[in-house]
Amino acid sequence: MPSRIVIADDHPLFRTALGHAVGAAWPDAEKIEASSAAEARAAVEVGADCLLLDLHMEDSHGLSALMDFRQDFPAVPVVIVSASETPHVYSAAAQLGASAFIPKSASLDNMREALVAVRDGDSWFPEGEGEVDEDLARIASLTPAQRRILDQMRAGLLNKQIAYELDISEATVKAHITAIFRKLNVISRTQAAMLSAKLDVDQLDANAGPG
């Protein structure tokens, strides 16, 4: 059977460019295009040998989308495609399980090189990868349910509101928050929200500063 490659990006022209790179790495591949994380998820659920994932689609929330796909489809390599081009972002993507990171400014040859590496079971990241971030390691230790609650906390919702949104009891929310605080080594909702901001690619770019 031919390989099945899912290309998730909300810009049609860039999906086309990625499609050319995919064709160079997997000449006989079936290429499935998606313009949102939801469409990508539906496609991967049918089956995929690789997912190319843009981090800036309307319904994808930075590196949270990467974590969700790695959690739910651990056998599917995820190649991040992003206009964010700082070592902090490269490092965060690698740390959270991406197999490769392709900057949108990359040449077609570099895109093909990255995809061939992933096809062959290797990883590929631009030069200048940053250091391991212990906070990201703590965030990665959270369960999907805990990450959802952390997202709601970051949005400023109270326990009662979180319980309503997720259709669980308030006692369950409190138990999850206790576990979240312990795993993140924080003592307040504010501290937890500040750590979760590290999944925001724009925030990582800003923190990288000039240079």
Results as ranks from 00 to 15, higher is better:
Met1Cys: 00
Met1Gly: 01
Pro2Gln: 05
Pro2Phe: 02
Val6His: 10
Ala8Ser: 06
Pro12Ile: 12
Leu13Ile: 15
Leu13Pro: 14
Arg15Met: 08
Thr16Leu: 14
Leu18Asn: 13
Gly19Phe: 15
Gly23Pro: 09
Ala24Gln: 11
Asp28Ala: 11
Ala29Leu: 03
Lys31Pro: 07
Ala38Val: 14
Glu39Ile: 05
Arg41Thr: 14
Glu45Met: 07
Val46Met: 05
Val46Tyr: 01
Gly47Lys: 11
Gly47Tyr: 12
Gly47Gln: 10
Cys50Asn: 08
Leu51Thr: 12
Leu55His: 03
Glu58Cys: 04
Ser60Leu: 12
Gly62Ser: 09
Leu63Asn: 02
Ala65Ser: 04
Leu66Glu: 01
Leu66Phe: 03
Arg70Tyr: 03
Asp72Cys: 12
Phe73Gln: 08
Pro77Lys: 03
Val78Ser: 00
Ser82Trp: 07
Ala83Cys: 08
Ser84Leu: 11
Thr86Ala: 06
His88Leu: 13
Val89Gln: 06
Tyr90Val: 09
Ala92Gln: 03
Ala93Lys: 06
Ser99Leu: 08
Phe101Pro: 01
Ile102Val: 10
Lys104Val: 00
Ser105Met: 06
Ser105Cys: 05
Ser105Arg: 12
Leu108Pro: 04
Asn110Tyr: 10
Arg112Cys: 06
Ala114Trp: 10
Leu115Met: 07
Leu115Ala: 00
Val118Phe: 00
Arg119Trp: 01
Arg119Ala: 02
Arg119Met: 04
Gly121Phe: 01
Ser123Gln: 11
Trp124Ile: 02
Trp124Lys: 05
Phe125Cys: 01
Pro126Glu: 05
Glu127Gly: 09
Glu127Leu: 09
Gly128Asp: 10
Val132His: 11
Glu134Cys: 02
Ala137Ile: 14
Arg138Leu: 02
Leu142Asn: 11
Leu142His: 09
Gln146Ile: 13
Arg148Val: 07
Gln152Ser: 15
Ala155Phe: 11
Gly156Val: 12
Gly156Asp: 06
Gly156Thr: 09
Gly156Ile: 09
Leu157Phe: 08
Ile162Arg: 00
Ala163Lys: 07
Tyr164Phe: 13
Glu165Ile: 04
Leu166Lys: 10
Ile168Pro: 02
Ala175Cys: 03
His176Asp: 09
Ile177Arg: 15
Ile177Cys: 03
Thr178Pro: 02
Lys183Ile: 03
Asn185Gly: 06
Ile187Pro: 02
Ser188Phe: 08
Ala192Met: 13
Ala192Val: 11
Ala193Ser: 15
Met194Pro: 08
Met194Ala: 15
Met194Val: 14
Ala197Asn: 14
Lys198Glu: 07
Lys198Ser: 07
Val201Pro: 00
Ala206Leu: 14
Asn207Trp: 12
Ala208Ser: 13
Gly209Arg: 13
Pro210His: 13
